[in-house]
Simulated assay, not measured.
Amino acid sequence: MSVDLLKLVEYGGCSAKIPAKQLEEILKFLPLPFDPDILVDIDTHDDAGVYRINDELALVLTTDFFPPVCGDPYEFGQIAAANSISDVYAMGGDPVLALNIMMFPAKDLPMEAYAEILKGGFDKAAEAGVRIIGGHTIDDSPPKYGLAVVGFIHPYKIITNAGAKPGDKLILTKPVGTGVIMTAQRMGIADQADIEEAKRQMKLLNRTGAEVMKKHGIRGATDITGFGLAGHALKMARASKVSMNINMKNVPLIGKAYNLVDDGCIPGASFRNMEYAENDTSFAAELDYNLKMIAFDAQTSGGLLMSVPPEKANSVIVDLHLAGLTSSAIIGKVSGKQDKYIHL
């Protein structure tokens, strides 16, 4: 089947998110329900909601969907599912059940493409041990796909974006640059090897990183998606009431992402993310412009950003590398609240 989903979209993957600045304005009008069993809600803009069932069990609930980030329907389904499930991993939970969310233009695409998207999602969910038990579809263009996911977690073992502490080291588990590389693909200037590596990273479940987090008792983390590394770090710093210092020279990059920015391949989402974060960010005089823009590059199904006690940092890195996450690196540190939340 020869179908190129990218011909139907302008923005794909997590770069299609509403800009963070607008989203925060919208959320101001959303009332917060009061219930002592709601353990995590939208107050800190965390990755998922958490609801306590009893003293031993809480539910992690999240949903995510977006337009295609790649041309192949099956791979799109895989990436969208991995991205949806990631929020449960970021909270330290075990994903269990999911529902499909699908918007599909029946008049523009063959039903075989629809089936391939769902199959990609099913296979990636099965890899994660998640059972897809239903869903909902509407006729809409461009196509969009994702999951509503339910996971289990112990109420006293939740990992949140409010758990960063001064002195912690910041560890990133995946390289960044998916937004730049997939944009370069649409422009016809990306190397095929970089495209394949970007898709591999997006299809890679954050399960291994989550297992390492839980092994070491990490309590502060988030996953890096549409608001970019700096944008999600900012949300984490605000929630934790700390500042974060990120050394962009230590941030792992996918392939030639740096050179592509140098060639002018800067996705529009990068500028929207920078507009959101720049008032709360200080930029070192020596910060390279390319790395500055990569800090705001919208990631799709990106890695975990962990806040790790300094005495555990080296052991966490060793375990991540042994588990196959060989790009994992210490990229910065947490300090007490300063004049700016983020320092690049």
Score class of each variant (00 low, 15 high):
residue 3 V to Y: 06
residue 4 D to Q: 06
residue 7 K to S: 13
residue 7 K to P: 01
residue 14 C to E: 10
residue 15 S to R: 02
residue 15 S to Y: 06
residue 21 K to N: 10
residue 35 D to R: 03
residue 51 Y to W: 13
residue 62 T to C: 08
residue 63 T to Q: 12
residue 70 C to K: 01
residue 74 Y to C: 00
residue 77 G to N: 11
residue 96 V to S: 12
residue 97 L to P: 05
residue 110 P to M: 02
residue 117 I to Y: 04
residue 126 A to F: 11
residue 129 G to C: 02
residue 135 G to T: 12
residue 140 D to F: 12
residue 146 G to I: 05
residue 146 G to T: 04
residue 157 K to V: 10
residue 157 K to Y: 10
residue 158 I to T: 00
residue 159 I to W: 09
residue 160 T to N: 03
residue 162 A to L: 01
residue 164 A to R: 00
residue 166 P to K: 12
residue 180 V to N: 06
residue 181 I to Q: 03
residue 185 Q to H: 11
residue 187 M to E: 15
residue 188 G to A: 04
residue 191 D to F: 09
residue 193 A to P: 00
residue 197 E to L: 13
residue 204 L to P: 00
residue 206 N to C: 14
residue 208 T to P: 01
residue 210 A to I: 05
residue 212 V to A: 10
residue 215 K to M: 09
residue 219 R to M: 14
residue 219 R to W: 00
residue 220 G to H: 07
residue 228 G to E: 03
residue 229 L to K: 01
residue 229 L to T: 01
residue 236 M to Y: 08
residue 240 S to I: 07
residue 241 K to M: 05
residue 242 V to W: 04
residue 243 S to I: 01
residue 246 I to A: 12
residue 253 L to P: 01
residue 257 A to D: 08
residue 263 D to K: 15
residue 265 C to G: 01
residue 271 F to C: 08
residue 273 N to Q: 03
residue 275 E to C: 05
residue 281 T to Q: 05
residue 283 F to D: 09
residue 287 L to H: 00
residue 292 K to F: 15
residue 302 G to M: 03
residue 304 L to K: 01
residue 311 E to M: 08
residue 312 K to V: 03
residue 324 G to S: 11
residue 324 G to V: 11
residue 327 S to N: 15
residue 336 G to N: 11
residue 337 K to M: 09
